[in-house]
Amino acid sequence: MRKFVLLPVSLGILVVAYFVTFGLPDQVSRLIGIATEETASADGAAQGREGASQGRIARATSVVMEPLQSSSYALTLRTVGNATSAQRANVTMSETGEVVETFLEANAEVEKGDILLRLDDRTQHLSLDIAQAELDQARDTVERYQALQAGGNLTITGVTLSEAEVALRLAEANVGMAELALEERTVLAPISGRLGLSDVQVGDLVSSGEVIVTIDDSTSLVVEFEVPERSIGLLSVGKTVLVGTPTYAGRVFEGQITAFDSRLDSVTRSVTVKASIDNSDKLLWSGMTFLVRMIEETAPLPSLPATAVTWDRSGAGIWAVEDGRAIRHPVTILYREGDRVWLQTEIPEGTQIVTEGASKLREASPVTDADAPEGPST
Rank of each mutant, 00 (worst) to 15 (best):
D217E: 00
D265E: 03
L182V: 03
R269H: 15
T245P: 05
Y248Q: 05
R293H: 04
Y248K: 01
R263E: 11
V292N: 06
R185T: 09
D261R: 11
E297T: 11
S220M: 02
I212W: 02
E229C: 05
T258N: 03
G203L: 11
L168F: 12
A178N: 09
G250K: 04
M177W: 15
M177S: 12
L182F: 09
G176V: 15
T240P: 06
K239D: 00
N174W: 14
N279S: 02
I212D: 00
S286T: 06
V211W: 04
V202D: 07
L205W: 09
E172R: 15
E296D: 10
V202T: 09
D265H: 08
T157W: 14
S266K: 11
R263D: 12
E226A: 08
L180V: 13
S207A: 14
V241L: 04
G209C: 03
L161S: 15
F290D: 00
T219W: 06
S280P: 03
S162T: 09
L180A: 15
S208N: 11
S266T: 11
T186Q: 13
V227D: 06
E229N: 05
T186K: 10
L221R: 00
L195S: 10
F260V: 02
T258F: 00
R269A: 07
G233A: 03
D261F: 05
I215C: 07
L161I: 13
L168P: 00
A173M: 15
V243H: 02
K239T: 01
V175H: 13
K274R: 14
T186A: 08
A249H: 05
V213A: 07
L197P: 05
V166T: 13
N174E: 15
T247Q: 06
F290R: 01
V200K: 12
T219M: 00
E254I: 01
L195Q: 09
V166R: 12
K239L: 00
A189G: 12
S236F: 04
T272Y: 11
V252E: 07
I215A: 00
N174C: 08
V202A: 05
E179M: 14
Y248E: 04
R263A: 10
V223P: 06
S231P: 01
W285H: 06
V222I: 08
G176D: 15
R230K: 07
L242K: 00
G209T: 04
V206Y: 09
D281A: 14
L235V: 02
F225L: 01
I232C: 03
L283W: 08
S280G: 11
G209R: 08
G158R: 13
A249G: 06
A275C: 06
D278F: 06
P246V: 00
A181T: 05
V159H: 11
L242V: 07
S276W: 07
V223M: 04
V166L: 14
S192V: 10
R251C: 01
D199P: 05
P190C: 14
V292M: 06
E297N: 13
I232R: 06
S266L: 07
K239N: 01
P228Q: 12
R263G: 04
G238E: 05
G176Q: 15
L284R: 03
T298F: 10
I232G: 07
F225C: 03
V206G: 04
G287I: 09
T247R: 00
L283S: 08
G287H: 09
S280Y: 12
F260K: 03
T247Y: 02
E165V: 12
Q256F: 05
G244M: 02
G250S: 03
I257W: 05
S218R: 09
D265V: 02
F253R: 00
D265I: 04
